[in-house]
Design a protein around this nucleic acid. Sequence first.
RNA 1: CGGGGUAUAGCGUAGUCCGGUUAUCGCGCCACGUUUGGGACGUGGAGGUCGCAGGUUCGAAUCCUGCUACCCCGACCA
Length: 489
Amino acid sequence: MSKKITKRSDDFSRWYNDIITHADLAENSGVRGCMVIKPYGFAIWEQMKSVLDKMFKDTGHVNAYFPLFIPKSFFTKEAKHVDGFAKECAVVTHYRLKNNDTGEIVVDEDAKLEEELIVRPTSETIIWDTYKRWIKSYRDLPLLINQWANVVRWEMRTRLFLRTSEFLWQEGHTAHSTSEEAVEETKKILDIYINFIQKTLAVPVIFGTKSDNERFAGAEETYCVEALMQDGKALQAGTSHFLGQNFAKAFDVKYASKEGKLEYVWASSWGVSTRLMGALIMTHSDDLGLVLPPILAPIQVVLIPIYHSQDEFKEITLKLKEISDVLKSKNIRVIEDFKDTRKPGWKFSEYELKGVPIRIAMGPKDVKNDSVEIFRRDTLSKQNVKIVDIAQHIEDTLDSIQKKLFEKAKKFNKENTHYADNFEDFKEKINLGGFVYAHWDGTSDTENTIKKITKATIRTIPLNEKSEKGICVYSGKPSTRRVVFAKSY
RNA sequence: CGGGGUAUAGCGUAGUCCGGUUAUCGCGCCACGUUUGGGACGUGGAGGUCGCAGGUUCGAAUCCUGCUACCCCGACCA
């Protein structure tokens, strides 16, 4: 064992970092707080992108691209929005370098920008400045646009994928003629996120709205998707915001209605980021390495020959090649690892570390039996399967892995969801980790106090929970519904 | 941004307190041979501005100053 992964039980953060480095997903770069996403990690992200992109397009959205830089004056137009992001903005102030007296390269102070440019932490402002020119009539609505981009938020403390100063995401920005339609869009996207994260990432989620404290800067309402990681901490996996007319008013975006009246448009914005990579890792992976749901796995099946002589090598690789072709014809992502520079044992470990869902090994014994050995990454179980049955078996197994991973995570989620009705109990449950459903009086004060004492925040005010009379777990004031508390990333 | 810690070969490290020949060990890498059903073994070999910049000293990985990056804990956040 040359690549040793810290056990989850020993040190969860270290385990997380070990998975990322040893599975070749990403690494820290020479730039503070910014990561390099390595080819294997990026391939997973690309897989996410392609599934999600299709979901957006199927619901009438189109992609576009807006600038990286936002003039400060645009940025400051929506008051709450600036408040929310001001503390973490990278600002471009100059546009040229020069050699100084000692030959050093320095910023040319003469090349100062008249107006500073903000490196986008999100694109609402530049986009609404644009929409102002695009939207004139009710006939221009709805406007349903998404962009895949990078954004920069100058974070104090960064962690690979979970929080980096620069990250990749998609941000959707839509404009509508009525409030109802904008809210409907916001919820439609929430559904897409729930669906995507549960079906594709196999990560179970809860969803709902955010409290005032946690709401997006400039939004009327923020809907969110929250997942639970193996260490019992919650991770916000996606957000969808109903922006009301806030940005329309800030950027004076009006349309002429059918009745010929000028009205401000209604808006939504929504996004998920490379943070989903973190959710994926921390939901499924184990002490042997990464575990990937088949839909996202860049490599779904790896073929490994086991042989002694060159004759055996030829015979076995020929048969494996045939299997490979059959699987490829079924659109299964398969690779043949016939390199003779590594021993089978080494390859086994390597692909386990990288989370490849299925490994097919074939050795002399298998040749005799017209079978192969099939190994499942999720259950670590081995099975001999006749070659004639291989295609069906692999297809079924990939499906089964995808389902099992979700079920397993769902089970964990359930086992770590608690209810608390008094504060002592609440503190205890929060310390156990996981989600805690409790009554809350609806005030920021109470939320802040609870946060101070327990470090837990309201992750979401669930949408589909039945209302239930009770008293706030902290203040004792009356409450009509439970909200979800957890410590979070 | 505050508090603590770390930085020595591609990776992990010893040496640092108490300055003194040629900087330790393991993994990995290269060559050859034997191996190949769970990260093989033997022999030989290559690889270092000791994070960067100054300073103290006859002499610095080791002492001093500054800087940078990373890790852990807080505040902030997707």
